[in-house]
Every structure is written in C-alpha cells, then in structure tokens.
Amino acid sequence: MAKQLNISDEHLLNYLDGTLNPQERNTIEQLLKADQQVALRLDALRSIHDYLLTSRADEPSKNFTQRVMERLQYPATSGYSPLNGILLLTGVLVAVGIAAVLLASGVFDTTTTLDLNQLVVPNKYLDENLPSIAVNGKLIVNLIILVNIALAFIVLDRAVLKPWFERRRELNLL
C-alpha cells in the first residue's frame, strides 16, 4: 500500500518507534497532513504498535513453579548417556577389529560342513540320512562385520553426535 507513496512503511515504523531525527519527523508529519493514504497507513501501523505495546504476558497454571521445582530433583537425562554410548561404540569397534583380524589371517577361509547325522538324536526318530550343510564362515563373519559397522554408526549418532549437537545448541549462548 505504502509503496505507491513517496514514503515507505519503514519510515512510518521508525516514526512510531521514535527513532527518526527531528527533521525526518517533521517531514513525516507534513506528509501526514497532506496525504490521507499515508495517514491511513500510519493509523493501521499505529493500531498494531499500540496493541503490541499494551499486550500482557499470559499466565501459566498455578502450580507451574511447584512442578518445575519437583522436576529439578531428577537429573537431566537423555535417551543415551554419552559415556555409555562411547563404551558401547568402543565395544562394537573392538568386535569389528577382532573379526577383521581373524578374517585377514584366513581363519574363516575354509568352508565348514555341518553334518547333521553326527547330531546326538535317538535313531528311532530318524528313518533317513540327514543332508550336510555347507557353512561359509567368511561370508557369515563379513555379514556380522557389516551389521556391527551399521550399529556403530547408529550408536555414534544417537549417543555421541546428537547429544553433543543438542548440548552445543543449548549452551551456545554460555
């Protein structure tokens, strides 16, 4: 609305805030007398200004303070404690490291065959020979390592990075 005029809303708002110098103030007051559109715009802005100036704070419930004081007794906790998270992360990485070393040393290179006929099962329950199952240890250990690496990333995010960033955001002003 005020863009059509030679005076901007910013000037009018500065006028209301009392941040104009006497000369600028005088110019605005002259324009207000000469231009009804400017006067109408100032009236709308003044209504907002006066409303905000006279606004009062809302009141919370009567037991607000009591509830805050009760909550102070409990330590500030998040879902994961960073210390526990670091310990868990260390454990996961150690497990991955051991698995990787064993893998590299060739412990799991041979394929093991699991012979189900060697299981101690009473013969009366078995009429036929059971099949033998080939177990590829290398593949299983690789999968375990992959799962552990994924777990390590999740633990790192939830227990270390997320609390750290939240804490940094909260304490950014300190």
Partner: peptide, 21 residues
Amino acid sequence: NPSAYADLVNRYKNYAFTLAL
C-alpha cells in the same frame, strides 16, 4: 540451595510461558 531457584521461576514464568506459547 535449589529452593532459591523458585524465586527466578516465579519472576520469569509468565514471560517464559508467553514466549513458548
């Protein structure tokens, strides 16, 4: 003396609540 904190809560609770609102 944590109970002294109640004075600060009482002083700022209205504004804190209004801002959150």
